[in-house]
Design a protein around this nucleic acid. Structure first.
Lengths: 211, 211
DNA sequence: TGTAAAATGTTGCAATTGCAACAATGAAGT
DNA sequence: ACTTCATTGTTGCAATTGCAACATTTTACA
């Protein structure tokens, strides 16, 4: 993920964060955060650690909306963060929290670092749109097999390899693809038997030419 | 949709568009556009008209990715615009096309309208993320009924009414929800019979209290 | 290192869905 | 107003999926 402070000197970065009245917060592992911060529109920036945006609906089905890593941004305006959503730290994590209105109202047109910051945010959010588009692409496929294959292709394209390092365990992958875990397991078995893929640990090798 | 030139005077807007080397193009109704522009990363701004981003996959299934109206922005970096995607004008439409690299490389930090333009783009794209999040929310529902109900709730929340004016015809709605049209038709019939909804023309009235 | 909890694999079965095929209705254009 | 094309409604049926239940393996951590 692109650094939101790219092309901004450490000094200017500090100035910026000060002007925007940001707060720097650290949370321990496996903690639900943001329920306490969640007033108004905020943008969070992950400085260190790993977190997940998780939705749990009324019947208890958990869905991972997004995984957040270093330099990732999140917030009420970027991810859906109503009371139905949680942010869970997977490791100890440090974040900056910035009021989005501060960003909107700032008028430092003679400061090029502010300009740069806006450009960086724009670029990051465009990347997030791309992620969403990919997910939609997968979810609109009508069969489990096609969802899996679409997912494989997207992941494979990302780094140009035919080997995919699953960033999830299988339970979470099923959540991400919005399919039943056991049904997914069954379909993966068929894909293996038919020689389309190979699975070792959490690495999937694509054996077919192209999809 | 928010105006990308909000808080920018017409004069500065012209300067900006000139500096960014934008082109103004007009297309007739029912035309596939952007196949000819599609080199490099561009941002398009809809000045007038209506368009749809449409995907047709190998077996011919059409999916409406997005509807574009006045002030909407689109482009290779915002919508997936590989060769699998088309933009179709539903009316005669006029657009500006801007090279995204021009935006990234511009360094007019002493011009507040450039700053304002970046803020506007940021805000618009954040709205687009919200749309994507909504769609994902719907698509992760496992049954047709739940997809429909989720869609109804989201649309109903948008304007606080229990009456939804479908922006689609039913065929397109089924595409949007990624379900079979006839199966959707069947489910809508059940929902009517069970007294959950009423349908007149292309207006759906929600008769249940809350979901 | 031992133990509890989480993740994974497997399978039968019922429910849901997509598909195909067709009728009926509505819309658009000449 | 008439004809053609697009949209909508309907239904049977086969295929796919979710669900439940359980065995097995792996992981976490006290």
């Amino acid at each position: 993920m692109l650094n939101p402070f790219q092309n901004i000197s450490p000094k200017n970065r500090e100035k910026l964060l000060y002007t925007l009245e940001s707060s720097r917060l650290t949370f321990p592992k496996n903690e639900l955060i943001l329920s306490n911060i969640n007033q108004g529109n905020i943008i969070g920036i992950v400085i260190k650690g790993m977190m997940q945006i998780i939705k749990t609906d009324y019947n208890g089905t958990r869905t991972i909306i997004e995984e957040l890593e270093e330099n990732d941004i999140f917030g009420t305006i970027i991810s859906p963060l109503s009371n139905e959503y949680d942010i869970l730290t997977k490791e100890e994590s440090t974040v900056y929290i910035i009021d989005y209105d501060e960003i909107k109202n700032l008028d430092l047109e003679n400061k090029s670092y502010y300009n740069q910051f806006l450009k960086n945010l724009l670029e990051i959010i465009i990347l997030k749109i791309e992620e969403r588009n990919n997910r939609i692409e997968i979810l609109t496929k009508k069969t489990i097999r096609n969802k899996l294959l679409e997912y494989f292709n997207i992941e494979s394209k990302k780094n140009g390899l035919r080997v995919i390092n699953l960033p999830f365990n299988f339970t979470d992958l099923a959540d991400y693809l919005a399919i039943d875990r056991s049904a997914m397991s069954r379909e993966l078995k068929y894909l293996k038997e038919e020689g389309f893929i190979e699975i070792k640990n959490h690495k999937i090798t694509l054996l077919y030419d192209k999809y």
